[in-house]
C-alpha cells in the first residue's frame, strides 16, 4: 500500500518478511537498553581523552564539559588529545626528540594480516564450497564434518605443535606463517557458510548455461558468484571480527616486525612497572575499533541477510 513512505525505508532499510513494525516508542526503549549495553565501550572512549590523574580520580569524571555549569566540577574532566599522539610517539624522559612507539607498524600489520588472511580464506573457501556443493565427492559429508571439527577444536590443542612447526620451518615471526595460520583458522566457517549459499541457488540457469557451452569456470564467475555477494560480505565480516582481535596465536607466533595491535596493546599495558596507562590503552583500543566498526556498519544489512540466507534452509 504505502510504499517507501515510512522513515526507516527512507533511511534505506529493507523490510524483512517476519519483521513487524514498531514506532518511536520501541526506539526509545531499545535506545536506552543499547546505550546501557554500550556504556563500557563509551567509558573506554571517554577515558581515551583523559590524563592518567583524571582517569584515576574519585569520584569518576564522566563529562568533557560542565554543560554551562549544570554538572558539578568534580565530575568534569578537561579533554585532551595527548593519549592519541602518544600512541604513535613517546616523548623521551630525558628530553629531546620524541621516540616512535612502532604502533603505526602494528596497525599496518593488523590491517594487512587480517584482511589478507580473511580474503585468502574467502577465495580458497568459496572455491571449495562450490566444489562441495556442485561436484560432491565420495564421502562428501565426512569431509565437511572433519573440516568443521577443526573449528571445534580448542586453539590451545594445536598451538604447541604449530609453535614447533614454525620454529623448524623458520615461519615464526614471518607474515607468511601467521597469514597461513589465520587462513586455516577462517576456512571451516567460510566453507560451511558459502556451501549453504551455493546449495540455495537454483540450478536451472547454470544448467542452461552449460548446455549453451559455457565452461564450468564461466558458470562459476558469471552466474553463481554474483548471486552470493551478500554471503561473501557476511562471511567477510564474521571472519574479520574474529581475526582482528585474535590474541593467542598472535602472541606466540609473531615477531617484532609482524606484531599485531592486540599483542602490542597487552605489552604496552604490562610494561613500565608504573601500572596501566589507562588513557593510552583506551586511545589504542578506540583507534583499533574504528576500522572494524565501520566495515561492520556498512556491511550490516548484508550480514543479517547473509546469516539468514546461509543457515536457515527450509
Amino acid at each position: 500500500m504505502s510504499k517507501a513512505t515510512s522513515i526507516w525505508e527512507k533511511l534505506g532499510f529493507r523490510k524483512a518478511s517476519g519483521v513487524s513494525e514498531a514506532g518511536w516508542g520501541q526506539t526509545l526503549f531499545a535506545g536506552i537498553i543499547s546505550l546501557i549495553y554500550f556504556l563500557p565501550v563509551l567509558l573506554i572512549i571517554i577515558t581515551s581523552f583523559k590524563l592518567q590523574t583524571e582517569a584515576l580520580s574519585i569520584p569518576p569524571k564522566f563529562m568533557p564539559t560542565n554543560l554551562f555549569g549544570l554538572i558539578p566540577d568534580a565530575y568534569v574532566f578537561s579533554p585532551t588529545l595527548e593519549n592519541y599522539t602518544s600512541v604513535f610517539s613517546r616523548a623521551m624522559t630525558s628530553g629531546g626528540v620524541a621516540e616512535n612507539t612502532g604502533f603505526d607498524r602494528y596497525f599496518f600489520n593488523s590491517i594487512m594480516i587480517a584482511s589478507v588472511s580473511v580474503l585468502l580464506a574467502l577465495v580458497i573457501g568459496t572455491l571449495a564450497a562450490f566444489g562441495f556443493s556442485r561436484y560432491p565427492l565420495k564421502g562428501n559429508d565426512t569431509y565437511l564434518f572433519v573440516i568443521l571439527t577443526t573449528r571445534m577444536l580448542p586453539a590451545i590443542v594445536v598451538i604447541i605443535p604449530i609453535i614447533l612447526m614454525f620454529r623448524v620451518t623458520g615461519l615464526s615471526g614471518s607474515y607468511l606463517g601467521i597469514i597461513m595460520l589465520y587462513t586455516a583458522f577462517n576456512l571451516p566457517f567460510t566453507i560451511w557458510m558459502m556451501k549453504s549459499f551455493f546449495d540455495e541457488l537454483s540450478l536451472d540457469v547454470e544448467d542452461a548455461a552449460r548446455l549453451d557451452g559455457s565452461s564450468g569456470l564461466k558458470v562459476f564467475f558469471k552466474i553463481c558468484l554474483p548471486q552470493v555477494l551478500a554471503g561473501l560480505a557476511a562471511t567477510f565480516v564474521f571472519g574479520l571480527i574474529l581475526t582482528w582481535n585474535e590474541f593467542l596465536f598472535a602472541l606466540l607466533l609473531t615477531g617484532i616486525d609482524t606484531r599485531t595491535v592486540p599483542v602490542a596493546m597487552s605489552q604496552a599495558v604490562a610494561g613500565g612497572g608504573i601500572g596501566v596507562l589507562w588513557g593510552l590503552l583506551a586511545a589504542i583500543e578506540t583507534l583499533f575499533l574504528i576500522p572494524v566498526f565501520f566495515v561492520t556498519f556498512f556491511l550490516q544489512d548484508h550480514l543479517l541477510r547473509g546469516v539468514t540466507f546461509g543457515t536457515v534452509k527450509r
Binding site: W8, G23, F247, Q300
Partner: peptide, 19 residues
C-alpha cells in the same frame, strides 16, 4: 522494525569487536 534500528544495533554489536 523501528526508526534508527540500524544505528542502535551497531552499538550493541560493538562489544564483540573489542579486543
Amino acid at each position: 522494525q523501528f526508526p534508527l534500528r540500524k544505528y542502535l544495533l551497531i552499538l550493541v554489536l560493538t562489544p564483540m569487536m573489542l579486543s
